[in-house]
Nucleic acid binder design. Structure first.
Lengths: 148, 148
DNA sequence: TGCGATTAAGTCGGGTACGATATATATTGC
DNA sequence: GCAATATATATCGTACCCGACTTAATCGCA
């Protein structure tokens, strides 16, 4: 009488759902890896984006991360509070805010260099397969963004 | 003197970022398509998951959507408020809440059947390419989830 | 039978996302 | 020179997402 219904997976054929689910799964893996740094995944991306630069504007960060100031400003303020980044008005154009790593932020960014390797291992895929997936997703993203 | 820095794209080789960016892009496309129904993307997934059933538990929905009750309960309550779903305690096991489509919810779910086609068009990819991408992402997701 | 362990939902707090709007600064046109 | 416009951030409200915890109901087994 074992009449358990089939596993409820009505999303076959929904590529969007596979992207969504992979995003959730990535987020959880990153959470595990980043918790000891007190970082979230988007904050990690900000540190990576700032690494090796001295002062990107909020707008440039937004272009890199596909986010707007309504998301970035509060996040950057939190990171300022935790001492990872500094926010300063551009002296020439006072509208612009330049974000740069503090010494501590640069230190943390340095310690994060092992993360990509750990994530690759967790993904269980070869670098080549990941690379192919990445290329395919980038094409998809570009199309989706152009369709607006 | 046009020394604009190269486009800030320091995320090559980060498959996670491609997944993240594709998720954001999908979300925006769906927002455009779903706004006239007053639906968000996760709410859309719930309607699809409930289509053709009469009463899934919150836990079953969570298994299907990879979400927990802390996310689903408030969302389902919102959908109850907007008249799309009904929430009822199971009469046999009072711990369980069964979620089903209302008549209006079933009606809306019916009208949503054109969405996948619209999204496929927006993706600019062939169904075959999307299918391959989906399979690859599902493997990735499974690995990431197993690595916990 | 009865009570501790398990399970299903719900609550709470913090952190993204994003549409709409506000504010301040810079640029343009006349 | 200065008003109209454009641009860069910031603010606000709503909705996910999740870790940690709570509450209520059921189960298991001595």
């Amino acid at each position: 009488m074992d009449q358990t219904p089939p596993p409820p997976a009505p999303f076959e054929g929904f590529a969007c759902f596979s992207v969504y689910a992979a995003g959730l799964a990535f987020n959880r893996v990153y959470k595990r890896l980043l918790d000891r740094f007190g970082l979230t995944y988007p904050q990690y991306l900000v540190l990576v984006a700032l690494r090796g630069t001295s002062g990107r504007t909020v707008g440039e960060l937004g272009d890199a991360l596909f986010l707007d100031s309504n998301t970035l400003t509060p996040m950057l303020k939190r990171m300022e509070t935790t001492g990872l980044v500094a926010r300063n008005r551009d002296s020439v154009d006072q509208r612009v805010v330049r974000v740069s790593l503090t010494e501590q932020g640069a230190q943390v960014a340095q310690e994060l260099t092992c993360i990509p390797h750990d994530v690759t291992v967790a993904s269980g895929m070869t670098p080549e397969a990941l690379s192919a997936l990445e290329a395919s997703l980038n094409v998809l993203t570009q199309h989706l963004r152009n369709s607006a």
